[in-house]
Every structure is written in structure tokens, then in C-alpha cells.
Design a protein around this nucleic acid. Structure first.
Lengths: 122, 122
DNA sequence: CTCGTACTACGATGGTTATCGTACTTTGGC
DNA sequence: GCCAAAGTACGATAACCATCGTAGTACGAG
């Protein structure tokens, strides 16, 4: 890896769609899943740069990997390696540029839902 | 709607979820389909109260029925019979109350997409 | 009453997706 | 070098969903 000396960041690369190619239907489809919605909500709630394992999702590791990939390929999150961990962050600015207001309204709605049903997942 | 003696309105009933029971994931899932998105866009574009047949969708009649049902059961549209026709309208106010800003941002995003790709469907 | 229109119900089919377990890879620490 | 931790790749499975065709229902016009 000729990535001149960044010892903590892995040379492993992950594909991310560029902002202009993020598709609305794909984003909506990615958000139409309770587990992925909870991931996005956690990332938006000040938990940026969390490792996948820190989310404690009610699914197996391989399923978790799957959901993170769906979010990444939809253009909703960005992922990068730090050691063995893969950290994630919301592409808030990119989404705001491409679909203004969409992510905030979804997050707002999801937060409202959790106030109604505090016994829900995550 | 006035129950007694409305000769143009059929007695056939259609189930609609009440506003407080509209679920975010269901709404997002319903919108994550290009055909349903085009229906919603058409309804928002001043074509309220259109009969299903007026949309000229690139699918069969039974598939069209299916998509309208998904939208109705998600709480996105309201449907009622007028003679043999079944007309549809967006539940704009209900959605704005339940998920403020969500529908406008989706519609705005979809309109932007159509400016990029005017050769797309519908 | 009959016919055409508009839509629905049902069953089938094929494609996508969510889930899992197992085996593997990459990385960092000892 | 070896091991544990974190995650990935792969294959299997089951559920879901979009699509269709056919047959049927409701309504209005004549």
C-alpha cells in the first residue's frame, strides 16, 4: 500500500457512490428497514465514527455487514478502516446537497416514533 | 364523507390507516419504488383526484391496483369510488402532521431527478 | 336486462432481500 | 510467528415483493 504512512488507516478500500449519483429510490429503500434506520439514527445522534460492533444490533455479524453495505452503497454512510475496525459516518452534507431536507425529516420522524414507543428496538 | 345517499359515490369501502398509525418504515418502503413514486409525483403535480386509469403506467392493470393499494395502506394516498372509477388523492395534510417535511423533500428530490433525466419513465 | 368500463381477487412465478452459519482475511498485540 | 478481534465472502434458505393473466364484481348507460 503506497499510501505514504498512515499507520492506523488500512489500505483496504470501500466503494462509495459519488454524490451526484446517489439515487432517491435507493436511499428510500435503504431507509425502509428498521435496523438500518436505527443505525442511521445512532450515527446522527452524536455517535459519529462508530465501529460496527459498537451498535449492538439484534442480528448476526454477517447480517450487520450486509446492512452497513446497503447503507454505504446507497450513499448514506461513509466507511473507512481503522485497524481491524471499520468505522462509519453519515454523509450528511452530501445528502443535504443532493436531497435537501430529506435526511433531517426522516430523522425527525424516527425520533418522534421512538418517543411514542420507547420499548422499541435500539 | 357523507354516508347517506350520495349517488355518485359507491358504497364500496376502502381501508385507510388513521394518521396516528402511519408508520415511517412503511411510508419509506412504499416510496422506494419508481412506479409508486411517479404516482405520488403525478398526484402532487396538480392532478388530484385522478382515476387509476388516467396515470398510464407501464404495468398491467392488476399490478397498478397493487401499487395503489400499497400507497393507500401506507397512508400516503386516499382513495374513494366515483361510479366505476376509483379516484386517488395525496394525504398531504396527514403526512405533514405525522412526518413534517418528509413528503415535500421527497417530491423536491424526485422533481430534481426528472430534470436530470427527462427521458425517464412517466 | 345487457353490455362495456373500471377495477379487484386470486393464484402463479420469478426476482430481490434478510437472515444465518461457516470459513476466510486483515490487523494489531504478544 | 501466533493468536484474538473485527469484519468479509460465500452459500443456503426463507420471506417478501413486483409482475402477470384470468376470472369476477360493481357501476352506469342504453
Amino acid at each position: 500500500m503506497s499510501e505514504s504512512a498512515s499507520p492506523t488507516v488500512s489500505g483496504r478500500r470501500l466503494e462509495h457512490p459519488e454524490t451526484s449519483r446517489i439515487r432517491l429510490e435507493t436511499v428510500l429503500g435503504a431507509l425502509a428497514d428498521p435496523i438500518r434506520l436505527s443505525i442511521v439514527c445512532a450515527l446522527a445522534g452524536g455517535h459519529e465514527d462508530m465501529a460496527c460492533v459498537a451498535f449492538d444490533l439484534p442480528v448476526s455479524k454477517s447480517t450487520s455487514t450486509h446492512h452497513f453495505r446497503v447503507l454505504r452503497e446507497a450513499g448514506i454512510i461513509r466507511q473507512y478502516y481503522v485497524g481491524t475496525a471499520r468505522k462509519s459516518s453519515l454523509r450528511t452534507d452530501d445528502l443535504a446537497e443532493r436531497f435537501p431536507g430529506l435526511l433531517p425529516s426522516v430523522l425527525n420522524a424516527e425520533r418522534g416514533r421512538r418517543e411514542e414507543h420507547p420499548d422499541g428496538p435500539t
